[in-house]
Simulated scan of single mutants.
Amino acid sequence: MKRSVRASLLAALALAAGCAVPPGGEQPSPAFPAVMRPLSDVEALLDYYERLTNLQGPELAKEHERARQAYAKTRSDYHRLQLALYGALPNAGAEEQMQSLNLLEPLVKSSEHRNADLRRLALLLHGLIQEQRRLGESLNAASQKAKEEQKRADNLQQKLDALKSIEKNLIEREQRMRRRR
Rank of each mutant, 00 (worst) to 15 (best):
L118H: 00
R80M: 00
A146I: 00
L45W: 08
K62N: 04
L124H: 10
A116C: 07
K73W: 11
P23Q: 07
L123T: 15
S143F: 15
L156M: 12
L104W: 14
N54Y: 13
A122W: 03
P106C: 10
D41K: 08
A162W: 08
R119I: 09
N102Q: 11
A141I: 10
A142C: 05
E131P: 07
L89M: 04
A20N: 06
N102W: 13
L104M: 15
L101F: 12
A94W: 14
R66L: 13
A92N: 06
N54L: 13
L103T: 10
L83V: 06
L85P: 06
V5M: 11
A72Y: 14
E174G: 01
R134L: 13
Q27M: 12
R179P: 10
Y49C: 02
R178P: 05
N140H: 08
R6M: 11
H64E: 11
Q144F: 11
A70K: 10
H64R: 07
L46D: 01
L135P: 12
L10H: 04
L52S: 04
S111M: 12
A142Q: 04
S165I: 00
D117M: 09
P90Q: 14
D41S: 05
R178W: 15
I129P: 02
R80S: 00
M177D: 13
A94K: 15
H79S: 01
S111A: 10
S76T: 14
K147M: 15
L139E: 12
L101W: 05
R176T: 14
D77A: 06
R6Y: 07
Q132F: 06
L139C: 09
L13W: 10
L39A: 05
D47F: 00
A16W: 02
R3T: 05
G25H: 11
R179G: 15
L85I: 09
S143R: 15
R119S: 03
